[in-house]
Amino acid sequence: VMGIVDVERRLSLMRSHTATHLLLAAAIDVLGKHVWQSGAQKDVFKNRLDITHYKPLTIEEIKKIEEKVNTYVLSNIDVKIYEMPRAKAEGTYGIRIYQGGVVPGKNVRLVNIGDINVQACGGLHVNKTGEIGLIKILKTSRIQDGVIRIEFTCGLSSLRYIQNKEEILMEAAKILNSQEENLIKNIGKIKEEIEKYKIENKQLWRKYLTKLVNEIIQQPKITYSDIKVYIPEFDELTREQMIEIGGEILKKHMEAIVIVVNKKAEAIEYVVMLNDEISKRGFDSSAIAKIIAEKLEGKSGGEKTIAQGFGRKIDNEIFQSIICEVRNYVINKLK
């Protein structure tokens, strides 16, 4: 049997392995000796180290860990690998040598990086820390109580990550016609303008809504006894706007059922709303929504006072049949 070792891949994994040991040492130095390795995964492009810690890492803590670990790299420390009797190893370095897990045997293989980090480890490593290259923390996250995951790259993968970020920054500056150093300031200004337009848009919507509701209540689709059913139709409304329209109509007519229909490009969605007063008389928004869904070959769901649904686009004939079905529902409830 013959095998061929992918040298570049092997070197990348060796850098990642030694980088993991250094990152753990940096985390212990910055966060405290309570930190313990909970898990790790090494790869060619991205690695992860899970550590025990009682809270998510702050930006400042991440920066300090990153600076500390790269100081170890730049110091070009010798990575020494040797075997030692288990009892002597534990007596010399303590149980912290088992950060990666307890290994079997009377002797243990130790990886000693300038006494910064000493671990029992059977993996391949670089000869000097300078061979690792830049170590860049990509992301940290809390994966469970007391465990923080640190995702990182090293070597050329770190360089490519930074280059990609630079490209994004340059493209953003180009889109906003801004110098890179003024980008945050200009984004802040744009955000302020957007917030201003949102307020203005909300004020315009409120004015339009008042006028719109006054027009809708003049033309109920169904009137039976004291119950009025309003079915306004719109194009491309948001769900929030649909509910707001329904709510405003119900404020003006307590004994009403509102079905707000929103016709999108390829489908129809709707919201059914009614007040508690007529809900107590047996009317149910979810039941009405289900009737409509059956006609639209769609789905619905909700509660007694508010429900929603969607279905395929319909023609006028089907729409009239929906009105007829809703009318029958109202009549049956009032019998």
Rank of each mutant, 00 (worst) to 15 (best):
V111E: 00
E240R: 13
I322L: 06
V69R: 01
L212E: 00
E297V: 10
D43I: 12
K264Q: 11
K33A: 12
I322A: 03
D115M: 15
K263P: 05
V35K: 01
K251C: 02
L183Q: 02
I216F: 02
I257E: 03
K264L: 13
I150K: 05
F234P: 07
D235K: 11
D29W: 03
D315K: 02
G133P: 01
V272M: 08
R86V: 09
I314E: 01
E151W: 13
H53S: 03
Y93I: 14
T223H: 13
A120C: 04
I323T: 14
V271K: 13
T210C: 13
M242H: 08
G39I: 14
A25K: 05
P85H: 05
F45T: 04
E193L: 06
R160Y: 06
A19T: 09
I292G: 00
V5N: 12
I249P: 00
R86D: 04
E233S: 15
N107L: 12
F310Q: 07
T140R: 07
I113P: 02
N201A: 12
V260M: 13
I132C: 07
E325N: 11
T20D: 02
V103N: 00
Q119P: 10
L334T: 10
I65R: 00
I249F: 00
V326C: 02
A267G: 15
R206P: 00
K207S: 02
R142L: 06
Y270V: 11
G101L: 05
I217Y: 03
F283T: 06
H253S: 11
V330E: 02
Q163H: 05
L334R: 11
R312G: 11
E277H: 10
K295R: 09
H53Q: 02
I77H: 00
K63Q: 15
F234I: 14
G3H: 15
L49G: 05
T92V: 12
Y98F: 10
A87E: 14
P85N: 06
G155Q: 04
K207L: 04
E325K: 12
G133Q: 03
N47D: 01
E244W: 14
L74T: 15
K42M: 11
R149E: 00
Y224C: 10
G100E: 04
I175P: 04
K295S: 08
S38R: 13
R86C: 06
L156P: 01
G247I: 11
E233K: 15
Y54W: 11
I150A: 08
K251S: 03
A89K: 04
E240I: 15
R239E: 03
R109C: 08
T223N: 14
E200H: 12
K202A: 04
M14W: 08
F319P: 01
E266Q: 09
Q41H: 07
S75V: 10
V103A: 01
I62F: 05
S141Y: 09
I95L: 12
I288W: 09
I62T: 07
M84F: 06
A307T: 04
K165T: 02
D50P: 09
R239H: 04
K106I: 12
K335C: 10
L209R: 07
E195H: 03
K46Q: 01
N316C: 07
R149N: 03
Q99A: 08
H53C: 01
I65W: 00
T18G: 08
D145H: 03
E294K: 05
L24K: 00
K189Q: 09
